[in-house]
Simulated scan of single mutants.
Amino acid sequence: MEDEPDEARSRDRIQSIERGIEVLRAFDGRNSALSVADIATKVGFSRPVVRRILLTFAHLGYAEQAHGLWNLTPRILELSVGYFGASSLPEVSYPFMSEVVERTGETCSVGTLDRHEVLHVARLEDRRPMPHSVRVGTRLPAHATATGKVLLAHLSSEALEEFLATSPFEVHTPHTITTAAAMRDRLATIREQGFDISEEELHPGMVAAAVAILHDGVAIGGISVSSTTVRASEEVLRQTIVPVLQEAAARISAQYRYANPHLSQRQHR
């Protein structure tokens, strides 16, 4: 059976839930306390609609108001329990990420692809402070990050074409990839060598290396090490960091398979 067109599927969606999720997403890592007006501006809803949604979340215990500002409560973490279980990618990855940090002395992250962005689902930092530090839940543009590109390199042809046709390719530094043609060339190199190294493509002075975590040939995530140009060069990343990441990715993949025996190869076809 062919997929239903978008307009047909939209009739089966509940708009109030979609709006509620948009309001929750307004509380990102940079904005933990917001006014009704702030949220209305961010999500594009009227203030009365935003207020009713916030009052609903407050009734459920997921939000609270103080001095005219709204913030989420710790109870919101209940909503992530189903994902962050013992067999989830973050929980499986953390022991191996700890080894990566110990062996490299650098920050290690695991991310997944969500449309045009990389969503960080696990992160461990070395004791040395990192500029532009991200947290679990932070989203970064896929086209400007090493993790994003190794995940893009493993997309199906159809999914990749959709990404290339719709990605805004925003410019972050002079080194950011800004065209579909340049991205195609970069992804071909990644498929050939099995990793990516990003030099100052998102932030000046920042470098990163990443490897895909594969399950039955499908990239379920990417593991990366990020550093600064002061501490690590491309050669250092290639010679010393990439082999550590490749080993960690293989071990995470094996453990993920063991923890999720129900995810057979047939389910990925």
Rank of each mutant, 00 (worst) to 15 (best):
E2S: 10
I14C: 04
Q15E: 02
I17P: 00
R19V: 05
R25S: 00
R25D: 00
G29R: 11
R30F: 03
L34R: 10
L34T: 08
L34V: 07
S35A: 12
S46T: 13
P48V: 15
P48R: 15
V50N: 04
L55M: 06
A58W: 00
Y62F: 14
E64Y: 13
L69C: 10
P74K: 15
P74R: 11
L79H: 13
L79I: 07
V81T: 12
G85L: 07
S87M: 11
P90C: 02
S93K: 05
E99F: 13
T107A: 12
L113I: 02
L113T: 07
D114W: 07
A122L: 14
H132A: 11
V136H: 02
T138A: 10
R139S: 02
H143D: 07
T147D: 06
K149F: 09
S156Y: 08
S156Q: 05
S157G: 09
E158Q: 14
E161W: 08
S167P: 03
S167Q: 12
F169C: 06
T173D: 01
T178E: 03
T179I: 01
E192D: 12
Q193H: 05
S198M: 12
E199M: 13
A209N: 05
L214P: 07
E235H: 11
V236F: 10
Q239S: 11
Q239C: 09
I241P: 02
P243K: 14
L245A: 01
A248T: 08
Y256K: 15
H262R: 14
L263K: 13
L263S: 10
R266L: 08
H268I: 14
